[in-house]
Amino acid sequence: MSISDWFKARESRRYTALDGDALARAEVPDGVWTKCSACKKIVYDGQLVENVRVCPHCGHHFAMCAAERVDLLADPGTFAEFDSRVSSADPLGFTGAKPYVESLDAAREQCAMPEAVVCGRAEIASHPVVLGVMDFRFIGASMGSAVGEKITRAFETAIAERRAVVLVTSSGGARMQEGMLSLMQMAKTAAAARRLAEERLPYVSVLANPTMGGVTASFAVLADVIFAEPGALVGFAGPRVIEQTIKQHLPKGFQSAEYLLDHGMVDDVVPRGQLTARVGLVLDYLAGGERR
């Protein structure tokens, strides 16, 4: 079966595309609870959803899926996804411990989305923006050709329509299953971000847990204003790789959002509950002329 046949077969199964109000969301049955991985206390899932997936006991920030991110940031009813069908092929016919096509298939089933990033037009605090959100569940939201293409188109769409860009990043880095095609997406997205900056359109990035490797080292940190979520792990090399290289244990809190703030790498660490208002306020300053 050729790659294109394979993809046609996949298409015919129809994925639930994240589109406007038809966003795929997990239903939350009553009485289901989660143990907070930080404080070990019991949190009811309903409570967790209410509290934007932040532990009400200790403030630990749980992961959010793409749909929840969109809900959190976009003004109600304003999000319209584009490029919803751009997704990964398997250009190298890659087989690691398991074939890449199987990993893609599993991720698409699990997340009910075709690729690790969702991009669309939206308004935030009434500012027209392009909003892109990454979903870590999808092969660690690693950046292959499709993620790189969608991010690049997000910047290009913003330039064409004079919109600001807001991206929420979360990624393990480059998607090694696409080899050098993945690495080159770093240069491609960085180039697109540069063009946005040259157009004097604002770009705000929100670094969510975790943002690592090739995504950090390209478009994620090229923003005009960089926020990070509390406790988010952000860096270039993964902690395990560093430990193996230097043969030492890493200091506590190493590569955390707070550590990056201390070292001057991010503008601020913003709790999720305040995030939307903060991003909106930044846009008030930087995108004032573009407000609707």
Binding site: A190, A217, S218, A220, G235, T245
Partner: peptide
């Protein structure tokens, strides 16, 4: 991949070079 490299913004430096 080292502590000091991360502290001084390895990812930031690479991203800037790409840009």
């Amino acid at each position: 991949p080292g502590i000091e490299a991360e502290e001084r913004g390895q990812a930031w430096a690479i991203a800037e070079a790409l840009s």
